[in-house]
Amino acid sequence: MKRLEAYRVDVEVQVKEGFESIVIVGLPDASVKESKERVAAALHTIGFTLVEKKVIINLSSAEQKKNGPLFDLAIAIGILKSDGFIADRIPDDAGFIGAMSLDGTVHPVEGMIATVLAAKKLRMKQLVLPFDPTIPRMEIVDLELETLLDVNKFLAGQLMCFPSPPWRPIF
């Protein structure tokens, strides 16, 4: 039986002018490194381009190995925030979980229940993740989304009504 254990990973992003590239550091495995392409395509879909920009992504702590696509949404939000596309402050006690499709759709990932439970244990106040009917209702989740554009609108205070599938608080 495979045991899933979740832990906090801080996603730090720096976007600056330079040779077009995306670098991920902090012990990412191949599936995390592939996030670069998924996230870049999803950002392009919502009208955000990385042309002539160097993006450095640090997944900390550096001692923990990172695997899977669950960091895609956090990486995308970090890029948007670092380059000024998201103007509002993102709280330190907020979390973002989900795999990105090339069209900007956010999908559930393996280990989401463990991740949600770990977020509660770490006393996180907000959690944004894709809709997954297998996750029990908890109080921490502020919204469940369908696309990267939805979460961008939510962070900008433009999305107050939640479309289908049902968006529900679960902590």
Rank of each mutant, 00 (worst) to 15 (best):
P108I: 03
M100K: 03
F71D: 00
L80K: 01
Q126C: 07
G78P: 04
A118E: 12
I135M: 12
V128W: 03
V109L: 05
V23F: 15
E17A: 14
M100G: 00
G68W: 08
L155H: 00
R137W: 11
P163N: 14
D150G: 10
W167F: 00
E20Y: 06
A74P: 01
L50Y: 10
I46D: 01
F171Q: 04
V128G: 01
D72F: 08
M100R: 02
Q126D: 12
K125H: 09
G84L: 02
R38C: 06
K153Y: 10
A74S: 10
A114M: 01
Q126S: 13
N58C: 12
L143H: 04
D72P: 06
L27N: 07
C161P: 08
A94F: 09
N58V: 12
F154L: 12
M1P: 11
V11P: 00
N58F: 11
G98Y: 09
T134D: 14
A99I: 00
V25E: 01
K2G: 06
I97F: 05
S61G: 10
A119M: 02
E37F: 12
L149A: 08
L70P: 00
M124D: 01
I97G: 02
Q64A: 09
R168Y: 07
L27D: 04
D93L: 00
S61N: 11
G95S: 10
E20D: 04
I46W: 02
L117S: 07
S101V: 06
F154M: 06
D83C: 10
M1Y: 14
F131K: 08
N152F: 10
E37K: 14
D29K: 03
D150L: 09
E144G: 05
K125I: 05
N152K: 13
V25W: 01
A62V: 03
P108Q: 05
E146S: 15
R137V: 14
I46N: 03
T105H: 07
I77G: 00
I170Q: 08
G68N: 07
E146D: 12
P165H: 10
D92H: 14
D88G: 07
G157K: 13
L148G: 04
L80Y: 02
I46Y: 03
A40H: 05
K65H: 05
Q158H: 09
I79H: 08
V25K: 02
P130C: 03
E63I: 11
R8D: 02
S101E: 14
L149R: 10
P69H: 11
V23D: 14
M138G: 12
I46F: 04
